[in-house]
Design a protein around this nucleic acid. Structure first.
Lengths: 161, 161
DNA sequence: GCATTTATCTACAAAATCTATAGACTATTA
DNA sequence: TAATAGTCTATAGATTTTGTAGATAAATGC
């Protein structure tokens, strides 16, 4: 389950993506517009700033602005910043293959292997979607085709183990 | 991130899948074999029992056994039992389309749409993997092909929105 | 310079969730 | 009827999440 913090971060970035390039938006304005607790949002924006997603200006006419263009702001990057590695198992940190501490036999590793697939499939979507995908087309979201019905998922190609 | 509880549940089921059909395995034995706190495992097994995955016998020579065959025990079902709906956003309960309470504008819905894809991709893997997949082939896990390298994910076909 | 505005920082607190433990109880078997 | 093994309810400790408080620092306009 994604945290409120991540959701707030994505919404704040989307709010900033909607203003004119070079302009700023105040924390209070973002908070009001997106229904986010202001003091909580402050911390989130600082995290986003330290990670280089946004910049800020102080004083009158201050506020926040995007530091990268919406095409360059990838969902997966934002989520990994806010949540730590977005993986279903602790031992599955991005690219890492270190065993879990309580992984004594093949059984757990088998479990791990399944969740590695889940993580890879999630990353594929999250790393293939940027802010601009959401701005451009309210129906779409990423380059991935989407025309099947809920229960009838068919195949995923090339999921890394 | 998957909970310890789910991991324990899957490991316990795998342990039961490895004994001869019709035989039982005691809680204490499962706990020792899989390094799971015994009293915690008790609760987990009760949940699994109420959901119809396992049955139990009391008294001497009692214990637990699988109620369904390993081919019929689907990862996704176990996880949804232990974790609630395995989706990245609260408003994405299985099949449901009810809006989030704080989903005021298109922006958040756009966020929601991306995570719907993630949920669908996860479900596809988790619902396509059974206990028997793990028992049969320690290298495999599900029917999904897996031969790409980590960073080079390519395409996912037919992810439901 | 001074007041105002706005972001920055550190610490803390309330709430929820996760993980696990305790202990009394019930059913089964020998 | 004693021993074994699952059942049930309550609770406690730890961690994480979510949010708040209050002081500080920088920029701007007058």
């Amino acid at each position: 389950m994604i945290s409120q913090k991540s959701k707030y971060a994505l919404r704040a970035l989307l709010a900033l993506a909607r203003i004119a390039p070079g302009e700023t938006m105040r924390i209070a304005a973002i908070a009001a517009r997106e229904t986010i607790p202001k003091k909580f949002l402050e911390q989130i924006l600082l995290d986003l700033k330290r990670a280089g997603f946004v910049a800020s200006r102080r004083g009158k006419h201050g506020g926040y602005l995007l530091l990268r263009s919406p095409e360059e702001i990838v969902f997966g990057d934002v989520l990994r910043l806010m949540e730590g590695p977005f993986v279903p198992l602790g031992c599955l940190s991005r690219g890492g293959n270190r065993p879990c501490t309580d992984c004594r036999d093949r059984a757990l590793c088998a479990v791990r292997r399944v969740f590695a697939k889940v993580a890879a499939a999630s990353d594929e979507i999250l790393d293939g979607t940027t802010l601009s995908d959401l701005l451009a087309d309210p129906k779409g979201g990423s380059a991935v085709a989407s025309d099947a019905s809920m229960g009838i998922a068919r195949s995923i190609s090339l999921v890394k183990m």
